[in-house]
Design a protein around this nucleic acid. Sequence first.
DNA 1: ATGGTCGAGTATCGA
Length: 260
Amino acid sequence: MRIATWNVNSLNARMPRVEQWLADVAPDIVCLQETKLSDDAFPALAFSALGYEAVHHGQGRWNGVAILSRGPITDVVDGFAAGIEPDPEARLLTATCAGVRVVTVYVPNGRSVDHPMYQHKLAWLGRLQHHLAITADPSSDVVVCGDFNVAPDDRDVWDAGACHGGTHVSEAERRALAEVTGWGLVDVLRQRHQERGLFSWWDYRAGNFHRHLGMRIDLLYASAPLARRLSWVLIDRNARKGKLPSDHAPVVAEFATDPP
DNA sequence: ATGGTCGAGTATCGA
């Protein structure tokens, strides 16, 4: 089973590349972030023609998350579960696909460490922790993936010194992320690859992609039973090349199917 | 030279 996450930075702008990428990579489950679409503008028919069921939680101009699956999609939750302070922004979607509880996230950026949105980001991660406890079970197959807007450690940024003092690398963000993953999640890329410089996002400006100035902020976490079945995982840098790319590359992981 | 580019929508703002 092949599971992928990709911040497409506008599905309207990216649809031709997304369709080609689905044909090339053949994932079974795909989580998309930053569709920037309302639900009624989501191209469900186009995905259906490619063999994918889809669910979308959108708001229009900003944010927007989706899950595509080759099989049926059930038990869908838009945003935070009942009982948690609702998010007026469309940043979270939960569904079950092929026996896997799939949670996709687009964590608030935070803007800067002295901005109110930074406190909102930390609180949002706390609400995510609560949401996981309600909607999923870490002793079964769970994937939590998406654009976390946090680089988990200094290997995940091009220059820790240059990034120091900014968002995405602060101690409080990393601690909030660690509290979420402490629920029972394995960063499958780090399970397999330990080197620095494995980035998933590069600023469009200043030729940063070609200068290898990026961050790893698109993360794919699996519960322990699923992580044990990891076959391989990669960041698809090819998707960041060429004409009209997203500023993010997909992360793709292959898991062996449950033994009979 | 203290920016650099996208995407939204059509002036700027957010990333």
